[in-house]
Amino acid sequence: MMNLKLKVWRQKNAQDKGKIVDYNAKNVSPDMSFLEMLDIVNEELILKGQEPIVFDHDCREGICGMCSQTINGIPHGPERGTTVCQLHMRHFKDGDTIFIEPWRARAFPVMKDLIVDRSALDKIIQAGGFVSVDTGGCPDANSLPIAKDDAEDAMDAAACIGCGACVAACKNASAMLFVSAKVGHFAKLPQGKIERERRVQAMVKAMDDAGFGNCTNYYECEAVCPKEISVRFIALMNREYLRTINHLGRKKGAGGF
């Protein structure tokens, strides 16, 4: 069992200024997940009649992308390739001080304590993260030929759970790893290729309009991504964007690529 000192960001609502509040987490088992540790702290707060620490979580098995805490300055904490819910207390030592903060970005306003509004990512998806036509049900195997490498790349990109840790980790609060995973996922597949130019333009515009920063190749995003999505997808997105140069100066609605 260990005792920890928590420094948690508390903020009543989107308008509140917010501040760091100290808590003691006592009798923490190394087998607990980070969220279970917070559950214990919250139960104690509720018993004392205080407002519990509010945080996002859902599946608690590392696949939903809801949990979103910056732990000691690192989104999802010190373990690579894990979400907060899959981070276990055995990675901390008795007596440690742990800072717990929400994602920080202009595009992700804090709603309460550790919860931020990530609908900016939804807007980017709405701008182009889909295929416009019905591609039908699951096709027979190999009826639509896709090169093995392309299928693997598309799958790697599709692993993105949209948690926003890439934005939170980026010193520029850039969403380019997220957007590049979506752009890359579609660009590698025949169903997505048809709209690839329009897609990258629309998604990059939505990303810029939401107030995210610009990538300067720090690669902090890749380091914290719970799905370990590679920054090479950002290079791929840059290539996709460059492709659109073929269409410079074409009139609106001129049609045909």
């Binding site: 420094k7 960001w9 760091i20 910056t70 000691n72 300055g73 690192i74 800072f99 903060e101 920080r104 980790a169 010193k171 720090y218 690669y219 902090e220 890749e222 380091a223 914290v224």
Partner: peptide
């Protein structure tokens, strides 16, 4: 962030 960290930049 109150507590800043850099992983690999």
């Amino acid at each position: 962030y109150e507590h800043n960290a850099t992983v690999q930049a």
